[in-house]
Design a binder for these strands. Structure first.
Lengths: 155, 155
DNA sequence: CCCAATTACTTCAAGCCTGAAACTTTATAC
DNA sequence: GTATAAAGTTTCAGGCTTGAAGTAATTGGG
């Protein structure tokens, strides 16, 4: 029996990665729960709404529905509902795309942009608190490693 | 103006932590999406169902509903529905708690335990693939850092 | 020109999730 | 003992999410 095989018997490499995944999940779910609670209490809003407004904020000239769902990596039908509610509340508006009557472009209203600015500022503070255990350098280092998972990722 | 203040103007510490959070979210959502898809295609199941069965698998003598929701960090009402469906499919059973007619204890059936064993084995492989960019040592290191976020976490 | 494939989007059923309210049972205080 | 509080759950409304199916508009051969 080789050393490798022996090591595999005691503890395969997959166990360390599985532990990492479990921990990663616990941390991100915990932070998400905190942020969601804060958004709910402070702004009567939700994480998905914040995500949509954030994407629109970075694209002042608006985004098509499909671009939005592509950026956020969620289904088309999902975005439909979230935008619908944001429109009702006056944070977002839809405008026709000239030359393509199928598509519509979504954009923050002035009210929406102002509201998002307030939310984003608080959001950054919350995250800073929640990740306070890590120095900026440590945070940057972990960010790089996570990037490797993303790029070298699966096949 | 102090050096610290100057640095803050250029890029406050919170930015590095915000970038880390964004990346963390992207990685964990991506992996979650992969695992969900795999569970759906290979086992016609879902991540929440897998989580419940996993918790029950580690507690062969069963868990009360409240213990289950406590472990999984989800609401009570949520667990009610998931367990309900698992019972319908015969993977899980509920039994009375002697001496407390309010509570009920949930436990994997034999069928449920066998099904979970198959799923857990595949699950570990999937995670191993998805996190393959990191060596076991790197994975262990990141796990420790994530633990610091959890323990030294917020106030 | 025409029609088949593609694209952009919406609708839908089913499940997940939360916080709040309701309900039943158990424990506590007086 | 009985009122009251607390504990364990379920129910519910509202919102998120997906994948599949449907609609309408556009594009690209032929």
């Amino acid at each position: 029996m080789t050393a490798i095989a022996k090591r595999t018997e005691r503890e395969p490499d997959s166990k360390a990665r599985l532990r990492l995944w479990l921990k990663l999940l616990k941390v991100s779910r915990g932070i998400e729960a905190d942020l969601r609670e804060n958004l709910r209490v402070e702004f009567a809003s939700t994480l998905p709404r914040f995500d949509v407004m954030s994407a629109l904020s970075r694209h002042g000239d608006g985004l098509k529905m499909s671009e939005l769902s592509g950026l956020l990596k969620v289904s088309n039908g999902n975005v439909t509902g979230i935008v619908e509610r944001l429109v009702e509340e006056g944070f977002v508006l839809r405008e026709a795309v000239p030359g393509d009557r199928r598509a519509s472009r979504v954009r923050l209203t002035r009210k929406g942009a102002e509201e998002f600015a307030r939310q984003a500022s608080e959001h950054e503070n919350w995250v800073d608190q929640l990740l306070g255990a890590l120095s900026p350098d440590e945070a940057a280092e972990m960010t790089e490693q996570l990037d490797r998972i993303l790029t070298e990722g699966p096949a």
